[in-house]
Amino acid sequence: MEVRTIKVFTTVDNINLHTQVVDMSMTYGQQFGPTYLDGADVTKIKPHNSHEGKTFYVLPNDDTLRVEAFEYYHTTDPSFLGRYMSALNHTKKWKYPQVNGLTSIKWADNNCYLATALLTLQQIELKFNPPALQDAYYRARAGEAANFCALILAYCNKTVGELGDVRETMSYLFQHANLDSCKRVLNVVCKTCGQQQTTLKGVEAVMYMGTLSYEQFKKGVQIPCTCGKQATKYLVQQESPFVMMSAPPAQYELKHGTFTCASEYTGNYQCGHYKHITSKETLYCIDGALLTKSSEYKGPITDVFYKENSYTTTIK
Score class of each variant (00 low, 15 high):
residue 284 Y to Q: 11
residue 311 Y to R: 09
residue 178 N to K: 11
residue 114 L to M: 04
residue 28 Y to L: 12
residue 10 T to Q: 05
residue 231 A to G: 07
residue 102 L to W: 14
residue 299 G to C: 03
residue 306 Y to H: 04
residue 34 P to D: 13
residue 248 P to T: 02
residue 196 Q to A: 08
residue 241 P to Y: 10
residue 56 F to Y: 07
residue 90 H to I: 12
residue 65 L to P: 08
residue 309 N to Y: 10
residue 155 Y to E: 09
residue 43 T to G: 14
residue 188 V to T: 15
residue 149 C to T: 11
residue 266 T to Q: 00
residue 275 K to E: 03
residue 63 D to Q: 11
residue 160 V to G: 02
residue 269 Y to I: 10
residue 39 G to W: 06
residue 200 L to D: 06
residue 222 Q to L: 12
residue 206 V to M: 06
residue 233 K to R: 14
residue 281 E to S: 02
residue 303 D to F: 03
residue 171 S to N: 14
residue 250 A to L: 12
residue 188 V to P: 01
residue 128 F to H: 03
residue 231 A to R: 06
residue 82 G to H: 15
residue 248 P to W: 06
residue 169 T to F: 02
residue 93 K to D: 11
residue 67 V to L: 15
residue 237 Q to R: 13
residue 262 A to H: 01
residue 310 S to Y: 14
residue 241 P to H: 07
residue 163 L to C: 11
residue 259 F to G: 01
residue 97 P to R: 10
residue 70 F to I: 10
residue 159 T to S: 13
residue 129 N to M: 04
residue 316 K to Q: 13
residue 237 Q to K: 11
residue 47 P to E: 02
residue 265 Y to F: 12
residue 183 K to Y: 08
residue 301 I to C: 00
residue 177 A to K: 08
residue 74 H to W: 11
residue 202 G to E: 09
residue 178 N to D: 13
residue 181 S to V: 04
residue 96 Y to H: 11
residue 33 G to V: 08
residue 80 F to L: 05
residue 155 Y to M: 07
residue 210 G to P: 02
residue 20 Q to M: 12
residue 110 N to D: 02
residue 296 E to L: 09
residue 270 Q to E: 15
residue 275 K to A: 03
residue 129 N to T: 10
residue 205 A to K: 01
residue 186 L to V: 15
residue 45 I to N: 13
residue 214 Y to I: 08
residue 156 C to I: 10
residue 273 H to Y: 01
residue 32 F to T: 12
residue 111 N to G: 12
residue 136 A to W: 09
residue 116 T to M: 05
residue 126 L to Y: 01
residue 120 T to V: 09
residue 312 T to C: 08
residue 159 T to L: 14
residue 47 P to Y: 08
residue 27 T to W: 15
residue 306 Y to F: 02
residue 176 H to L: 13
residue 308 E to G: 02
residue 109 D to V: 09
residue 315 I to F: 15
residue 85 M to S: 00
residue 172 Y to D: 11
residue 251 Q to V: 13
residue 24 M to L: 13
residue 30 Q to T: 14
residue 233 K to Y: 04
residue 17 L to N: 08
residue 74 H to M: 12
residue 96 Y to P: 03
residue 170 M to D: 07
residue 56 F to K: 02
residue 228 G to P: 02
residue 51 H to E: 10
residue 206 V to T: 06
residue 79 S to L: 11
residue 195 Q to K: 11
residue 180 D to F: 05
residue 135 D to Q: 12
residue 100 N to K: 15
residue 5 T to Y: 12
residue 119 L to W: 00
residue 137 Y to N: 08
residue 56 F to L: 13
residue 233 K to H: 11
residue 126 L to D: 02
residue 185 V to G: 01
residue 101 G to M: 00
residue 5 T to S: 13
residue 130 P to R: 07
residue 38 D to E: 14
residue 204 E to M: 07
residue 139 R to P: 04
residue 150 A to R: 01
residue 127 K to C: 10
residue 266 T to D: 11
residue 256 H to W: 14
residue 92 K to V: 09
residue 114 L to H: 05
residue 88 L to M: 02
residue 239 E to G: 01
residue 244 M to Q: 05
residue 215 E to L: 06
residue 101 G to N: 00
residue 251 Q to N: 09
residue 218 K to C: 02
residue 120 T to D: 03
residue 316 K to F: 15
residue 312 T to L: 12
residue 122 Q to K: 05
residue 161 G to R: 06
residue 52 E to T: 10
residue 288 G to H: 07
residue 244 M to A: 00
residue 224 P to S: 13
residue 152 I to C: 08
residue 208 Y to F: 10
residue 84 Y to V: 05
residue 290 L to P: 01
residue 38 D to I: 09
residue 155 Y to G: 03
residue 170 M to G: 04
residue 281 E to Q: 02
residue 265 Y to L: 00
residue 95 K to Q: 15
residue 181 S to A: 15
residue 266 T to C: 05
residue 8 V to G: 06
residue 129 N to F: 02
residue 95 K to T: 15
residue 173 L to P: 06
residue 136 A to L: 05
residue 17 L to Q: 15
residue 242 F to C: 02
residue 32 F to C: 15
residue 142 A to D: 13
residue 36 Y to P: 08
residue 188 V to H: 05
residue 304 V to Y: 00
residue 83 R to A: 09
residue 145 A to P: 11
residue 174 F to A: 03
residue 295 S to H: 14
residue 25 S to C: 11
residue 88 L to C: 07
residue 48 H to Q: 00
residue 49 N to Q: 13
residue 224 P to C: 08
residue 218 K to M: 02
residue 139 R to Q: 14
residue 43 T to L: 09
residue 6 I to S: 08
residue 110 N to C: 10
residue 181 S to W: 14
residue 190 C to G: 05
residue 263 S to K: 03
residue 3 V to K: 13
residue 201 K to V: 11
residue 97 P to N: 09
residue 198 T to G: 00
residue 113 Y to R: 06
